[in-house]
């Protein structure tokens, strides 16, 4: 992909990246893409744990075999339980948090309801050394303004017993996403970032839209997305250079 070099990629000093956010903000798509990106660019092992106990469909576990081909290990319930929407957290998740090995991405369910699972794992986490990242989509009804987003953030912090360390700006409208949608979202994420005093760690958007944009306008690292959690009638976009 020719556009890749134009953008600064996201970088993390911590081994554990916890992806949370409002319901339907795009956590799973971001998690899957982040895992794929790290697997391609770093020599360290990458593990993704699907901790979504809220959604029945469109979960990162659906991309498990896709990720396996890139060497990413998925921690998901086995057997029939992979299809359940039950609060199942397999024991391996706790082990991975205690000893991540390489990078561990935790894809957590939406809102405070989804984030509650972190509270039950709280004791396994080291005192520092993890990132709690808010996925922010300003086109979602309950995070479309500053007030609503701050409310969701404080509810997630309360339920998880953790503090935010970063914001992922992921504003989109699925197929109707334009550069304008992305930039308006970035503006709103900046406002959240300034008020909550939490930095924006990266912006994520689909490659097709990013390629139409002036990189100068985006003053943060960027994760280009190749959509992986598709609707049954959608076909995967050709990935280019991979």
């Amino acid at each position: 992909m020719s556009g890749k070099t134009r953008f600064t990629p996201p970088q993390f000093s911590n081994k554990i990246l916890i992806i949370v956010g409002g319901f339907g903000s795009g956590k799973s798509e971001v998690s899957v893409n982040l895992a794929a990106y790290l697997a391609r660019t770093s020599s360290e092992a990458v593990t993704i744990a699907d901790l979504d106990v809220i959604n029945p469909y469109f979960r990162s576990r659906e991309a498990a075999s896709q990720l396996a081909s890139l060497g990413v290990k998925s921690l998901i319930p086995g057997g029939e339980n992979v299809h359940a929407d039950l609060p199942i957290v397999i024991p391996e998740v706790k082990g991975a948090i205690e000893e991540p090995g390489g990078t561990l991405i935790l894809d957590v369910g939406g809102d405070d309801l989804g984030a509650r699972v972190l509270s039950s794992l709280r004791d396994a986490f080291p005192a520092t050394g993890y990132d709690l990242l808010l996925t922010h989509n300003a086109n979602r009804p309950f995070t479309s303004d500053l007030e609503g987003t701050l409310k969701v953030m404080s509810e997630i912090e309360g339920a998880s017993r953790m503090k935010f360390t970063g914001i992922i700006c992921n504003t989109h409208l699925m197929k109707d996403t334009t550069s304008e949608v992305v930039l308006t979202g970035l503006k709103q994420s900046r406002e959240v970032s300034a008020t909550a005093n939490v930095p924006i760690v990266f912006l994520s958007a689909v490659t097709e839209v990013l390629e139409t944009m002036d990189p100068e306008l985006i003053d943060c690292p960027i994760l280009p997305l190749n959509r992986s959690l598709l609707k049954p009638w959608e076909r995967q976009a050709p990935t280019g250079g991979n």
Binding site: F23, G24, N137, N139, R140, P141, S144, H172, M174, D176
Partner: peptide
């Protein structure tokens, strides 16, 4: 303006 909604939410709002 357009908003991004899950079907269940959109039906509820409708």
């Amino acid at each position: 303006a357009k908003v991004l909604m899950k079907g269940n939410e959109a039906i509820a709002e409708a």
